[in-house]
Design a protein around this nucleic acid. Sequence first.
DNA 1: CTCTTATGAGAAAAGGTTTTCTCAACTGGG
DNA 2: CCCAGTTGAGAAAACCTTTTCTCATAAGAG
Lengths: 348, 348
Amino acid sequence: MSSDAESAPVFARPPVTLREVAAAAGVSVATASKALNGQGRMTAETRERIRETARLLGFRPNSLAQSLLRKRSFTVGLLTNDTYGRFSLPLMAGVSDALVDKGVSVFLCNVEDDQRLGQLHVEAMLDKRVDGIVATGKRIDRHLPVDLSNLRIPVVYAFTQPDPGAVGLVSDDAGGARLAVEQFVRLGRRRIAHVAGPASFAVVHTRADAWRDVLKENGLAAGEPLLGAWSEAWGHDAVAQLFGKAGREGWPDAVFCGNDQIARGVIDALRERGIRVPDDVGVIGFDNWEIVAEATRPPLTSVDMNLASLGREAGLALLSLVDGHPAAPGIRKLPCRLVVRQSCGSPP
Amino acid sequence: MSSDAESAPVFARPPVTLREVAAAAGVSVATASKALNGQGRMTAETRERIRETARLLGFRPNSLAQSLLRKRSFTVGLLTNDTYGRFSLPLMAGVSDALVDKGVSVFLCNVEDDQRLGQLHVEAMLDKRVDGIVATGKRIDRHLPVDLSNLRIPVVYAFTQPDPGAVGLVSDDAGGARLAVEQFVRLGRRRIAHVAGPASFAVVHTRADAWRDVLKENGLAAGEPLLGAWSEAWGHDAVAQLFGKAGREGWPDAVFCGNDQIARGVIDALRERGIRVPDDVGVIGFDNWEIVAEATRPPLTSVDMNLASLGREAGLALLSLVDGHPAAPGIRKLPCRLVVRQSCGSPP
DNA sequence: CTCTTATGAGAAAAGGTTTTCTCAACTGGG
DNA sequence: CCCAGTTGAGAAAACCTTTTCTCATAAGAG
């Protein structure tokens, strides 16, 4: 019975259709369909025979035909403007991960910051009848260059500014900052500085506020955060500002940085000044960009925004909307976690 | 005539079908289809009336129905195992870029190094009748954990090991290395060392061979490359090896590094030893990872593999295969380019 | 033995579009 | 006035699957 149906050239031959399975099994397409889907009534023998035939022929149902009928394409679009991808990629991987098991595939749409490109991608997705869209970007406080507000299909915003009334998922930046600062407090640090990113980013203020709050809650002095850029160079400059003054007793004993690049700059600058990390000064970064955090000397303690989880949650939220379950609109904040390495020091 | 057909709630209403357009224009669906596609014969007046009706109703043809009939889904799959995405993302952006203008959308499939996940994604893509697949990975000399050899649809390999007889696109690593070393030679450097990545990578040997060739062609002494890891730490260690010996006259006056992280480590280590870059020693990296190259002090000259172009080429090559144009199998190497910053020095 | 009910399986419509035929009406030549 | 040819437009099949009906046949009840 091993007259293998596969010995003929497999490629270049059109896929096996249900009609062919039905013919081979000697039944109608209707019966074949029902047999394979566990629907309808028929003898167990018939059902099994059809299934075996399908298996033998390597039948796989045509998703396009199914979609046309069911009005569900098992396809979603993922819109991003993060070309560089440091944030987008884990997020995308999370979305894809959450959906592939349910048979849902993800269209990748890189729209840069280009209106025309955004329009083009959205139209292509709608034409292909995606079941929904995940919109994601490189910063939480900016809109993508596309209008997704009247779209007839559900949209979930992840790590980007949602439209009013829409479902949005972002990292809990305040919580993340608290984790870092509280870690310092727990380790006995008392003069905790904050070297932040540029003032134009909303998260910079969110994190700075949380930093100040924790200091106050613990009766510690809170000055102003140092606002700058997201770069190593700014980390260097900030160290010059913080540690330039003569009196060593005015120096911070901990620096909470706006991202890992700043932290890297801070640590390098401290080393150049002969200030030891973490003995003299503890340092914590943000983003947990592993390739940077692990190359820093000493390895950098950093706040991780759990972007893959965020992506997974976004994927599941979208799926739930697609299935017709209503979701509370508004922004849901997902917790960060602190990845402790050596730069923050250990308990005294 | 501005009785806007759009004032009713647009969302939650099923998309406009060709049948509705035909009814509204008072013609048959056949005529409507032909009018919109520029096919068939009819009065210019009829054609225009139908088009206007379609425009007014916001008609967009259902891609699923079209695909079913035309046996082309205008969809391709992009398979990658580069979760971290430093290489994949520009490549993916390139593929997507090249295709979006032709109305082709890209399924993103992250398969990690997981057989099961690969299988799952490939089956999902086939079921959705993708027109072709671009396979890409994080290194040129490894296969993805999936078998794409008998697939009935065309496959193009980009930046990953192709199956025999398939079409593959990779960067010209030897050429890239030549660019770097020849730049040093042109700038008058004479003792050019090579701090490479781990021996287990094929590109490490490709680049090392090119490095040696250029040295020989120019009558310069070529020793052995220093094999290590793709890390900053290895860059540090390599400097200790190269510049540890007493006699300053034995020191290299240029270091060609296997990637930008190594280069970063090399430059940092040189600074710590008081050796000036580029005055005493020139440094060139590989990958042109901008965020690293630009943060290095001084900014790092680096070889760029033009991954976005590679992606674009891969997309176009796939499209050409899909259209039935045969392509010569084998590996095509795309040129790199040297991005000159300050770390390599300037003409003497 | 007749009537009802359960059972197994097929026919047909639906989904939205494209394309090939078919056909009526009109034009112009003889 | 008749016939060939052109023109405009519709009918229907096709793509592949799912689902609702319909309909024999067999089984069971009276």
